[in-house]
Amino acid sequence: MFRSALLFLVLFITWLALSGHYSIFLLISGVVCAGLSTILTLRMNKIDNLPPEVNFTYRLPLFWIWLAKEVTTSAISVAYHILHPKLPINPIIQTISAQQKTDVGLVTYANSITLTPGTLSTNVNKESIEVHALSKNFIESLTDSEMNLKIAKLEKSQETDS
């Protein structure tokens, strides 16, 4: 019950933020739409039995800031590789280990790898991820496993919260 009330509230706030008009007719339509969406979501949860399990902790924004820094440095490096007249690339495919235990953690890790320019996850297994990199120095930042450890920590802090 608390969960569906929260969902309704979030949906209605999204409606308010996106509409920007606050006449009574539009407010009532917002309530109706948010209510309908909540009811439909509840029905869907009954079918697939998978309530959305996303827990935000204080670590997540910190991780995003760190990821933004990583993305910026490697994007500049990729831009250098593209603009260099000789195109100094040497693509390799390498399998790196993943310590995450839940599906959400694994997806976060694979998506973070892909989001960082220069590295691209091509195949995700239970304990390893196959990564295509534009050249060797891009994959070196992954094999020292800083990102791996950070996401594993993020995952653990979520588990203890829930």
Binding site: A75, I89, L120, T122
Partner: peptide
């Protein structure tokens, strides 16, 4: 346009998406 194959071109497209 410049990079040689699918995988490398995805890297270039990723540059557009992110930064």
């Amino acid at each position: 346009l410049r990079l040689p194959d699918v995988y490398c071109r995805i890297h270039a497209a990723g540059l557009t998406d992110t930064l």
